[in-house]
Design a protein around this nucleic acid. Structure first.
Lengths: 125, 125
DNA sequence: CCCTTACATGAGCATATATTCATATACTTT
DNA sequence: AAAGTATATGAATATATGCTCATGTAAGGG
């Protein structure tokens, strides 16, 4: 394999460091999958929605009311989460109930919450 | 406190569900902190950068070369991560070395990687 | 002091994102 | 079938984001 060091800065001094880091790189598809997952959690609205839907099943309008959002906004975000298979829905009459039983997302969110709660305390500066 | 149910849909049938979910809501500042943290991981470039900087210390140009990016793009993202105190830097001559020793970010990223590796296997649907 | 190297940063641009508004669809009731 | 309720969705809009290009700043060498 060819490792280009044409435009190497540092006079190419650290080519070993670059090679080392390069060998440990994450595969591109993995990186994309990862960023996609984190992106789902990278918005206040979606965090609130998921936190609710992890707690219990809710129909769209109840979710909208609980969050003080319009039905349309909630529905658009639900479509987003549905596309990523993060939430599921079931129909009952003309209401549609959503849930989130995605263990991965739940784990990441919970870990984030735990971290955020502790943060600020050990911000040594 | 007043719980509005003016524009309650479902004829206000699920007001208990709404109240329940409302009582368990995350505090706004926490939600914002959370989304900020996840946002840092919600971009392929930053994931790659952080993965490198968790592995070892790198100067800007080496990071740029390892990732096949311009120095400017890397520098902009480093500023972003620096502002969030996710990465640290130290100067040595006219090179500036960056590292990421943020345990929270490292934890989230690792958890995401683990999950992403297993995913696809149990995609029953 | 001038030049080079390494990094930072502001402006501009193209794209992505989150919401709103209007409207379409699916189901229920009469 | 017609009307009502709950949800979905397309278009439009405002803002955010990530990159490039040009330039500014800090440290080192002659």
């Amino acid at each position: 394999m060819v490792v280009r060091m044409d435009d190497a800065c540092c006079g190419g001094l650290h080519s070993d460091a670059v090679a080392d880091v390069r060998s440990g790189q994450l595969a591109e598809p993995l990186v994309l999958t990862l960023s996609e997952a984190f992106k789902a959690l990278a918005d206040p609205t979606r965090i609130r929605m998921l936190h609710c839907l992890l707690r219990r099943e809710l129909c769209v309008c109840d979710l909208a009311e609980a969050l003080g959002m319009t039905q349309s906004a909630v529905s658009h975000q639900l479509r987003y989460l549905r596309t990523l298979r993060i939430v599921k829905n079931r129909r009952d009459g003309n209401a549609i109930y959503y849930t989130c039983d995605d263990a991965h997302i739940a784990g990441l969110l919970q870990m984030g919450i735990d971290h955020a709660m502790h943060a600020g305390a050990n911000e040594g500066g």
